[in-house]
């Protein structure tokens, strides 16, 4: 596997934004986040070779990406996870929001991400996987917990997030 095969390359392209969001969840520093994103993408690419179709490709990609990100934070734990934001590349939005809307949305998002980064790793994973559109069963499978446990963790985390958004 010396070059990116067309199929793998296609999978990585389809899940590029998702991988970017996983990296942003675990690493706040812009440069370290880029580094982590490359590490995650490499890990997913290597792991795609072993994909047996037991789950959806999205679940598999998320599972490998989260595992790699956890390894990253474990070995770079001395650096703070919350850091100032630097420049960003924006995906094409469906509609062009006004400058005020953009600032408001950015503030809300940063508040949400700040809250998520303070959660235990498992909660962080459950809540972000849910927001990526995974079902309870898929989240449970990826995290190695029961579906009911995933539901309890998710509901508790969502409550905290909603409260902080309303109070913020």
């Amino acid at each position: 596997m010396s070059h990116l095969s067309t199929d793998f390359s296609q999978v990585l392209r389809e899940h590029a934004a998702l991988l970017g969001r996983v990296a942003a969840t675990y690493e706040a520093n812009f440069h370290k986040r880029q580094e982590l994103l490359q590490e995650i993408t490499l890990a997913v690419w290597q792991a795609l070779d072993k994909f047996k179709g037991d789950s959806s490709i999205k679940t598999y990609v998320l599972r490998v990406a989260h595992n790699k990100a956890i390894t990253h934070v474990a070995y770079h734990a001395k650096q703070p996870r919350n850091d100032s934001y630097c420049e960003m590349e924006s995906p094409e939005p469906s509609h062009k929001p006004s400058a005020v809307e953009q600032i408001d949305q950015q503030q809300k998002f940063q508040m949400m991400l700040g809250q998520i980064r303070q959660m235990p790793i498992q909660t962080m994973q459950v809540v972000t996987m849910s927001m990526e559109g995974l079902s309870y069963d898929e989240i449970a499978d990826a995290c190695g917990i029961s579906s009911s446990n995933a539901g309890v963790v998710l509901n508790r985390a969502r409550k905290v997030l909603m409260e902080s958004m309303q109070n913020g």
Partner: peptide, 12 residues
Amino acid sequence: LWLQQEVVLPDL
């Protein structure tokens, strides 16, 4: 809000 976040894309 989560899906609308601005992200950096990987360099393949």
